[in-house]
Structures are given as C-alpha cells and as structure tokens.
Design a binder for these strands. Sequence first.
DNA 1: AATGTTAAGTGTCAAAAGTACATTTTTTTG
DNA 2: CAAAAAAATGTACTTTTGACACTTAACATT
Lengths: 244, 244
Amino acid sequence: MNQSELDKITNVDQPLTYYEKEDQVLLAVDCIIFGFDQNKLKLLLVKRNIEPEFGKWSLIGGFMKKNENLDTTAARVLYTLTGLSDIYMEQLYTYSKVDRDPGQRAISVSYFALIDVANHQFDGIQLDSAKWFDLDEAPKLIFDHQDMVDKAIARLRRRALSKPIGFELLPEKFTMRQLQTLYESILDKKLDKRNFINKINSLDVLIKLEEKDKTVSRKGAYLYNFDKDKYEKKVKEDGFSFKL
Amino acid sequence: MNQSELDKITNVDQPLTYYEKEDQVLLAVDCIIFGFDQNKLKLLLVKRNIEPEFGKWSLIGGFMKKNENLDTTAARVLYTLTGLSDIYMEQLYTYSKVDRDPGQRAISVSYFALIDVANHQFDGIQLDSAKWFDLDEAPKLIFDHQDMVDKAIARLRRRALSKPIGFELLPEKFTMRQLQTLYESILDKKLDKRNFINKINSLDVLIKLEEKDKTVSRKGAYLYNFDKDKYEKKVKEDGFSFKL
DNA sequence: AATGTTAAGTGTCAAAAGTACATTTTTTTG
DNA sequence: CAAAAAAATGTACTTTTGACACTTAACATT
C-alpha cells in the first residue's frame, strides 16, 4: 500500500473513536487436520453441508461463540466433527480478505491438528461426509482453504524439525522405520536410514522397548516410546532443543 | 480441554447453523513496532488516550473496518500514528481470551513492523503521546500486550536468522559494524567480528560501496547496500536461502 | 534340515560448517 | 610525529553432516 492509498482510508484529523460504533465481524476457525496412516500423511476434509459452495470439499470449521476463545472454538469444531478431544492443535494464521467468503463477511483463523489415525476411535459423528485424502490427491477446496493447507504444511515441516510434534501423529509404540517414514512424508524427501537413526538416538529422548513389531518383517523391529518427561526435563535443565 | 468440558459447550445433536445468528465480535490489530537506533533495538509505545486503562502504555492499535482486511488495517494504524507508509509488516498471532480487554469483547491480531528510525521522517502525528523504548526498559503494558511483544521478539529472532529482514531496520547504506550490532541486539548476544563478516560475505548479497562512514572512527568504515535484486534472483534461480 | 527371503540393525570416513582467536592498517588528534 | 581508536583481515581446530554396504534374525519354502 502506498501513501495515497493510505490517505484515502485514513482520517488523521478525526479523534480516535475506539469502542464506539466499530464494525463487528464473524470470526471462524478452520482446521487443517493431519493424520498419518498406512505410511502416508493425510488430510481430513468434509463435504460442505451448507450454502454457499454446498457439496464442495472444505476444511472443517465453525464460528467462534461469544463465550469461547479461539483455542476453545478449534477444539469444539474438531470434537463436533470427529468426537476426538485432547488433540494437539496450534493456531496458524488469520485470513481476512474482504471477499474470501462470498456468503458473508467472515474472518477465519486457521488451526492445524495432528492425529494418530490408526489408534484413535472415531465415533463417526458426521464422518459420513468426511474423508482422509493423501496430500497429493486432495480435491480442490473452497475459498482460501488451499492457502491454509499450504501454509499448514510449511508450518508442520518447520515444527517437525524443531519440536517433537511428529510423535503426535504416531501410536504410542512405534518402530524406527515408522518414525523415519513419517518424517519422509512430512519433509517429502527420502532420508538415509543410518543417519536418521543415529540422529534420533543422539537426541536421546526415546525409550527402546523389549517388544517387537512383527507385522512388517519376519525379524521384527523394536518398538519405541517417546519419553516426554525426559524431553521436557532436558529442555528445562540443559536448554536442550530437539533439532532434526 | 478434556472431553467433559467439551461436552458442555458442544451440541452434537443440533444441526449446524452456520451464518445464522452467529456471534459477531470486534476485531482489532495491535502493532509491535521495532526500530533500530543508537545501536539499540527499540520498541514504539503510546500512552493510551481512551478508557479503559487511559494513560497507560500500550501498543498502537485500532479496529478493523468492514471494507478492510487485516493487512490494510495494520498499515492504516501504523500510518495514522506515525505517518509512515511502505513499512515491512508481518502478521503474528491472534489473541482471543474472553476477558483480554475489560472494556468490551475484542479479538486482536498482532502485527510486527520494522522501521529504520534514523532515516524515516516522522511527521509527528500523535507522536506527542508516543515514545521509543529500549527493549529492556519498556514499561508495563496493558492487557496481553506484553505477550504480544514477547512473541514478536521471538519471531523477529527467527526471521532475522532466515530472511534478510534485518536490512529493514537499517538505513540504505550501513557499515558492517552496524549490521553486526543490529544482529547482536536482535539475538541478544555478542558475535565474533571476523566470523560474522565472513558469514555475511559468503552469502554474497551485499554491495560494497567506495564511500566510507567516518562518524565513528578516524579510519572510517566502508558502507554497504543490501542487493535486494541479487538476493531475489538467487532465491529464485539457485534455491538460495539466507541463513545466518 | 537346508536354503531363500525380507526387513532390521549397525559404523566409518570425508567434506563442510562452525568457532576461536591476534595482528596490522588507516587516519585523525594532540 | 606519536598516540589513539576503530577497521580490516586469515588460519587452525572442532563439530556436524552426509555418503555409503554388509551382517543378522526369523520365518517360509522346499
């Protein structure tokens, strides 16, 4: 925006009149829900049951109520659609183009959520209209939802490299191979097996279990837990940071 | 939030009623304005001229109007207070606690702005009530503004290490020493002079001028420009990324 | 019982990046 | 012309990253 454009919308002479007759708007939350299943990173989308854009694929979303804050709204929206609670969610960005929703002026705050698809029981609330898509096979989305998804992927990539959020997408017990495949899907590139394992082990935040997963190979692969307590202790005491 | 809390605020049985009788809210923008002057990183604050918290120190802010988007609002708010346009601004985070503003329910989106204090002419609009503060000498702020500032500093640090936004805080021509001092203030730690210069030079995005700055030393220090075109060309053609 | 199959598990070496560190140069001032 | 003050410059050491291939375990097949 240059100066003359600014001049048009600015009334420098008028005293500021905060709180009086200011415009109010609808505030929505849209959730980018990532899941990891069958060794692939997926996105949960719904078929819209309301105009405008009835029947089109969309992120799940809903409007913030007066007695809620945005985190609460995001949790409610997710719960209403999937029945899941206690899910990792993070606020991303606020979208405000004047005509972004042709139905009515609405601002939308995007949140991303990380779900371990395999181990969560979906009780199927409204799940008839929802579907998991591979990231590269997702349909065209309404409004600015594709921008939201793109930004969420970028954020997920950065976060996965600097915080142990990847574990939110895995079951409690997982193999090194699963962990590596997860990172490969998030980063969208192949990683070297030995280097990856060496790196992970050097971080020293996993617990190696006695138990093996034998569903994939005859030999079986050791299962691991993420040691959240140890991780948090290291962060607090040694200024440790998870860097992959 | 756990399941029972969610149950309270969720009406699973009711059909969704988007767009009908949804709550509307005031949407504000608050700006964290960073400046670099006298070899220090500074923050621009204002004394509030309105209730509640009249007379207290605050970020500059204002409400979004119906015909604006958030970026436009942020630019207007900055222009109204400082008379500056064409300033680097970036959306940060949206604050939504129910009681964050005791005056009225208001959601606020924070933006940070980077200003080269020395070279910008403030025409002083409302600047009687505004003041630059050293980061560590800033007064107590109203509402959740301190959270906003803390988050902005963290973001500025990350950005400064991965994007050439530091130059937004410097005059067009600057010395290596100024650039280093800027980074030292942003990162809040001393850097080694030779390593810093070697690093910057290896990025190969500065133009060394013939001209010297003699205001600081007898010998004088060469002035540099940031070569934005070269930087953008490198990003596009070589997938180059500015990493400090 | 021997052999085949499949994924799991493991270590070394070279290159690159990061970090620590001290002296000389230039120019003005006294 | 000596003193002062900041500018400019390069090397050696350490740490991190990245490339790379063979052995092991367990079951399945014959």
